[in-house]
Structure formats: C-alpha cells, structure tokens
Computed example of a mutant assay.
Amino acid sequence: MSLQQEEAAAGQITADAARVYEAFFVPALFGQFAPWLVEAAGIRGGGRVLDVATGTGVVARAALKRGASVTAVDLNDGMLSVARELAPQVHFEQAPAETLPFEDQAFDAVTCQFALMFFADRVQALREMARVCHPGGHVAVSVFAPWEDSPGYCDLIPMLADIMGPEAAEALKAPFCLGGAGALESLLAAAGLDTATLSPKTGQIRHASLDGWLETEIGGWTLAGAATPRIMADLKAAAAERLGKYCNADGTVSFEAPAIFAVATV
C-alpha cells in the first residue's frame, strides 16, 4: 500500500483537500447530521462540549449555535487549519482521541461524528470520551451503515476498484466499517458504554452533478493525492453508465445516507 493509500485508510487529508471537504462535503452530507448529533447529545446553552475528531469543525459550530462552550480536537493538521479559520470561538487542539488532554469530568457532553472508524484504538477512544464526560452527561457518536447498504457508495466503490485499483476501493470503504450488525455495540460494551441507545438516522446526499460528486468524493477526501487527471477523466467517463441512476432530471445527484447514532449516559 502506498503512503497516500495508508493516509487514506487512516483518514488523513491535506489542507487543500480539507477546504474541498468543507466547501462541498459539508453542505452535501455532513452539515445536516451535525445539528442532529448535537440534539441527540442533549447540548444546551451554557454546557461544556467536547467534539472529538472535529474535522473542519462542523459539529463544533453546531454546538456553538446552541450556546455551548466548545472545545474540539483532531489529529489532522489540514482539518484543523480550516476549522480554526471558520470558528475562532472554539478552542481547538491537536490531539489523538485515545489520549485526550483533559481532566476527568471536564465536559457535559462529548460528540464524535463519523470518525470512530479511523481511530487506532476505538475502545480506548470511547473510554476517553466517557472519562472526560461529567456524570449524567452524554457521549454521542455516529457511524455510517455498511457500504453495501448505502446508496451511491454501493456502486461508486466497485467502480473505483475497477479504475483506481482495490486499494483505493478499500480506502473508500473505511468510513462504513462500523455499520454492520453488532460492530458498534461491541465497541461500546468493551468501553463500558453498553447502556447506549442506538437509533438509525437517514440523511440525503446532494451534489450538483455526477462530475461534482466525483470531484468532491476524491478531491475532498483521502484519495485526493492519488487521483491523477487521467484517473479522474476515466472515472467521469464511466460515471454516466455506472452511477447515472442517481441523477435527477435537472442533472443533480441525490441519494440516501443511512447512519447509526449511539448515545450513552455516563
């Protein structure tokens, strides 16, 4: 596996890719889930919130809108550089989820949106989230359903395998790896959060066009450095036949994004 593919599997992206992520992925997908997760975590005005693996800070910003005092961490410099520009009111730190640099019970709620799958030690990360959460507070995490059950991706990933190779396809599968039956439950139980309530949540992915979908998916995520202009041209050429069913009459693209929310009271 190349360095770029290793970074992709670990969720690492450049600052340029982070800007594409914020400009296109957030409105296309992640932005709608952020207020839902904040609501699920019971975040209210005056509360102290920690957002773990904040990315470009979409959940942190949603918590700010609820009047919370927000701290956020991420391991990725590229993401944090964009997050700090967009929300200077948030206290951002570079830190791994497995060793959060905060005292016990420092926060009233802890959130983690679509990032648990990228942690080196997922159980330890969940334990850390529980450790820094005040008794009676909530730890709220979200993961995607399996890629095979996710419209759009169930067709995009095989196309990517054919054109970019199996390693690239595996990298794009990474965000979906905790959606299978029992996967998230077992992690929560191992972390002492076995009383968590799990519930399905379905969003909508929207892109301006097939080309826009591919440019966002590749350029705004972990494969940005691996997709040459020739590869992008080949992907776009294949998209009409293999992904055309997701196109609307006006040329826009939309499909459902099934996810799972887990909320535990500490």
Results as ranks from 00 to 15, higher is better:
Met1Arg: 12
Met1Phe: 00
Ser2Lys: 09
Leu3Val: 04
Glu6Arg: 14
Ala8Thr: 02
Ala9Lys: 05
Ala9Ile: 00
Ala10Glu: 11
Gln12Ile: 01
Val20Asp: 03
Glu22Arg: 13
Ala23Tyr: 04
Phe24Asn: 10
Val26Glu: 07
Val26Gly: 07
Ala28Phe: 12
Ala28Leu: 10
Leu29Phe: 09
Gln32Val: 08
Pro35Phe: 05
Leu37Gln: 05
Val38Arg: 12
Glu39Leu: 04
Ala40Phe: 04
Ile43Pro: 04
Arg44Thr: 15
Leu50Gln: 01
Thr54Phe: 11
Val59Arg: 03
Ala62Arg: 07
Leu64Met: 02
Lys65Trp: 04
Lys65Thr: 10
Gly67Thr: 09
Ala68Phe: 03
Ala68Glu: 04
Val70Cys: 04
Thr71Ala: 05
Leu75His: 00
Met79Lys: 03
Arg84Tyr: 07
Arg84Gly: 07
Leu86Val: 02
Ala87Pro: 05
Pro88Gln: 11
Gln89Glu: 12
His91Ile: 01
His91Cys: 06
Ala97Met: 14
Thr99Val: 10
Leu100Gly: 13
Phe102Gly: 01
Asp108Gln: 11
Ala109Trp: 12
Val110Tyr: 01
Thr111Phe: 14
Gln113Arg: 08
Ala115Gly: 15
Arg122Cys: 03
Arg122Asn: 06
Arg122Val: 01
Arg127Cys: 06
Glu128Cys: 12
Met129Asn: 03
Arg131Lys: 03
Arg131Cys: 06
Val132Ser: 14
Pro135Leu: 08
Pro135Arg: 13
Gly137Ser: 10
Gly137Thr: 07
Ser142Ile: 00
Phe144Leu: 11
Trp147Glu: 13
Glu148Met: 04
Tyr153Gly: 09
Cys154Lys: 14
Cys154Asp: 07
Asp155Ala: 09
Leu156Glu: 14
Leu156Trp: 14
Pro158Met: 12
Pro158Arg: 08
Pro158Ile: 02
Asp162Gln: 15
Ile163Cys: 12
Gly165Lys: 00
Pro166Asp: 09
Ala168Asn: 01
Ala169Tyr: 04
Ala169Ile: 05
Leu178His: 03
Gly179Glu: 08
Gly182Ser: 08
Ala183Ile: 05
Leu184Ala: 12
Ser186Glu: 13
Leu188Ser: 14
Ala190Gly: 08
Asp194Val: 06
Thr195Cys: 11
Ser199Tyr: 02
Pro200Tyr: 00
Pro200Val: 02
Lys201Cys: 08
Gln204Val: 13
Arg206Met: 11
Arg206Cys: 03
His207Ser: 11
His207Ala: 15
His207Leu: 07
Ala208Trp: 05
Ala208Val: 06
Asp211Ser: 15
Gly212Ile: 07
Thr216Pro: 03
Ile218Met: 13
Gly220Arg: 08
Leu223Ala: 01
Gly225Tyr: 03
Ala227Val: 15
Ala233Lys: 14
Ala233Asn: 10
Ala238Ser: 08
Ala239Pro: 09
Ala239Gln: 02
Ala239Cys: 02
Glu241Cys: 04
Glu241Ser: 15
Leu243Met: 11
Tyr246Ile: 09
Tyr246Leu: 08
Tyr246Asp: 12
Asp250Thr: 00
Gly251Met: 10
Ser254Tyr: 14
Phe255Val: 06
Phe255Leu: 13
Glu256Leu: 04
Pro258His: 08
Ala259Val: 00
Ala259Thr: 15
Phe261Cys: 01
Val263Trp: 06
Ala264Arg: 09
